[in-house]
Amino acid sequence: MASESNISLRGLFINALQDASRTFKMSTIEDETQELIVSSLANLKKVAQGVELAGVFSPNETLEDLSTAHLPFLLVDYVLAEMEGRMRAVDGPERMKSLTNSQRHLHAFLRRLRQYDVVPEEEKKAFSKKASEVRDPTARRELKIKQYKTEKEIRSRLEAIGERRGQTGDPNGFNDDLELVASMLLATSADEQQRDDEDDETLRETYLLALRLMWVQAQTLLESMDLELELLRNAPPPAPQRPESEQDTDNTWRLDPSIPRGGPDGKGPLMDSSGRILRPFTILPGVASSERARFQGEVFRPDHRLPSMSIDEYLEEENRRGNIITGGGPDSLNKPTTSEQLQLDSEMDGMLQGELKEEEKRQKDETWAQYTDLHPKGEGNTMNTG
């Protein structure tokens, strides 16, 4: 391929990548997003046509025979698949057409990488099975972990090479993998213009790692597209739409035809002589539905318990239960204590109550005397001396 043609194709590819990376930050239903997708697809198709006419890739070549400058063009089919999948669709058949075109480009991308043996056998083995086809939950989880580690290792190596070549940016920090590819190609393009003695091996390794990363993403995209296509194929057909004129005039299919109001003010009789309802009515709660009305009234109320009695009623009830202590004050100061009252009652000579109180006082004194003998004064206050 001539040098001028190579620069032209590379410039078209970079422009397509820039438009494609911008679409991932925008909503696909917006007209501006669709314009960028159409522009990117147009440039990508020109690039694909130019690559095909120039014979950049040959089935007789190996990966060692392919020049470093031609490696980025292996990504054209992958970017085409991404853009086809983001095309706006108004119905199921149109969405199925977009997914089919996207899958066609993805398979072409995978065939090209398989032709040049870009992906190592270990990575092929990690993605040999689809996670959705594994029934065992434990095996499916282990498979997803293995695939995630494979992808993470590739991203880590890309980041390390970028730091070694003096590029800024973390591969994990981009919004999508397409933005990563665009930024990488733009950076390498600038490096090639500024430095002619660029290490070709490092640049080649960068491109190959990007191809392997896109290969991993292609496997995930194909799996998700297969699931979406299966849902679209099994989706029920849309209901046929009735003509607007027929909808306005034909009301025989309605389950709730218009009901006469029983008069211009809607206050006519409720039923006619044959028992036909003439106007809408509301059934009010009666004796039979009083319990239902009570429950209905308790639905919308405060979430805290409201008081069921006044403060005066509460105090009266507590006083009746004996929970309120009465007395105290100056009057209780002049009243004798329980010991003094017992002494006075025991001095009532010649009366049965006096004798009983005297015996009660004697037992109380005896009990106190026994307690003081067993527990000398100051026994409990040892001041921590044992």
Rank of each mutant, 00 (worst) to 15 (best):
S156E: 12
R242P: 00
E192Y: 05
E122K: 08
H70T: 04
Q167L: 05
L374N: 15
F295M: 14
D170V: 11
I145W: 09
S289F: 10
T252S: 01
Q247L: 02
R164M: 08
P336H: 14
E4Y: 00
L158E: 02
G286E: 10
R22N: 08
L143T: 06
A239T: 09
K97I: 01
F295W: 10
L333S: 13
D31A: 13
H375L: 15
E121F: 06
K267C: 06
L9D: 05
I311N: 04
I277P: 03
S183F: 05
G378T: 05
M309N: 02
Q147D: 07
K361W: 09
E133R: 07
E244S: 15
E133C: 12
L284C: 09
V47R: 04
S346T: 14
G92F: 05
R114E: 06
E298D: 13
L36C: 09
L232I: 14
K146M: 11
D136A: 08
A235I: 07
D226P: 00
N60L: 10
G327P: 00
R276N: 14
F24G: 10
R276I: 07
F13Y: 02
R321Q: 14
D199R: 07
K357L: 13
T385M: 12
N381C: 14
D256R: 06
D265L: 13
P59G: 00
S339C: 02
T337Q: 10
E366P: 01
L213R: 09
E4G: 03
S21Q: 03
N6D: 11
A42L: 04
S3P: 14
M351G: 09
G85S: 13
A54K: 02
G266Q: 13
F57S: 01
T337N: 11
N43Q: 09
F300A: 11
D197K: 04
A81H: 05
